[in-house]
């Protein structure tokens, strides 16, 4: 796509801004900032990726994955404000998911260890793990508050924190996996996934594009399940103090 053609698509932004002004929504400034930020961020990442692909070094590829996981953990850990040490817990959950999922794809030779494969697929796995983590932390607190009486009964009977919070963690895991499962159910019917669309537009065989997309879809289901379960195991203890009293 030429820059001239790309520039033409700014018409969409201008139209949205025009509609906002007409209906007095007051969103023009936000729309402009969002468009500029997206352009700058995507152009920058485009040049970074070009450099990383050209160098094609394992250390650089790994550094990119680490950076993505740190940003994802920082973003997701903004949820669950009252859970101490949540950044490291989220990061560990995200990274363990990335290692297991990507490790399986590499070990089974589904994809080669090349930055052009590792980075985009890692991005999707980590992004999905980030969303699942944020949802989990959000729901964990809500569920713990909603089921506080039940936890109290179990604690008075001598339950461990794990036993007392079992239903709370289970409900939070289920709730945080629903978006991934729902979007998987409607895939191809409601929306064509971004990766597949991109490949088709770039000239790839649609069947090949579908195969890669299915690979990602399956990996994402596993990643959501793995992330939330690891995060559940790492965070349930923070719902209680040293005397096994609920603190949420």
């Amino acid at each position: 796509m030429s820059l001239w053609a790309l520039a033409w698509t700014l018409v969409f932004v201008a139209t949205a801004m025009g509609l906002s002004m007409w209906r007095r929504l007051g969103l023009e400034k936000d729309m402009l900032i969002a468009a500029v930020r997206a352009t700058v961020q995507l152009m920058a990442i485009g040049y970074v990726l070009k450099f990383v692909f050209r160098v094609d070094h394992a250390a650089l590829t790994s550094a990119m994955v680490l950076l993505m996981s740190a940003v994802a953990a920082d973003n997701a850990s903004r949820r669950g404000q009252r859970l101490a040490g949540r950044f490291w817990r989220v990061w560990m959950a995200v990274m363990s998911t990335e290692i297991v999922t990507l490790g399986f794809l590499l070990a089974s030779r589904v994809i080669p260890f090349q930055p052009a494969y590792v980075i985009p697929i890692s991005g999707m796995i980590i992004g999905n793990a980030m969303v699942a983590s944020a949802l989990f932390l959000n729901r964990l607190r809500g569920e713990a508050q909603a089921r506080r009486d039940e936890m109290m009964v179990l604690l008075t009977l001598g339950a461990t924190p794990r036993q007392a919070s079992r239903h709370v963690v289970k409900a939070a895991v289920k709730a945080s996996m629903i978006p991934t499962i729902d979007s998987t159910k409607t895939m191809g019917l409601v929306q064509l996934p971004g990766m597949m669309t991109g490949q088709i537009i770039a000239g790839a065989d649609p069947i090949q594009a579908v195969r890669y997309q299915l690979l990602i879809v399956f990996a994402l289901i596993a990643s959501a399940a793995f992330t939330t379960m690891v995060l559940g195991a790492l965070t349930y203890g923070r719902l209680f103090n040293e005397y096994l009293q609920p603190v949420v």
Binding site: D149, E150, V153, T156, L157, T160, H167
Partner: peptide
């Protein structure tokens, strides 16, 4: 704490049932 709570049982004012 767990041993203490086994030895000292509490019946709460509101009888909360477990699922």
């Amino acid at each position: 704490v767990r041993s203490l709570r086994r030895r000292v049982g509490l019946v709460m004012q509101q009888p909360v049932m477990l699922p």
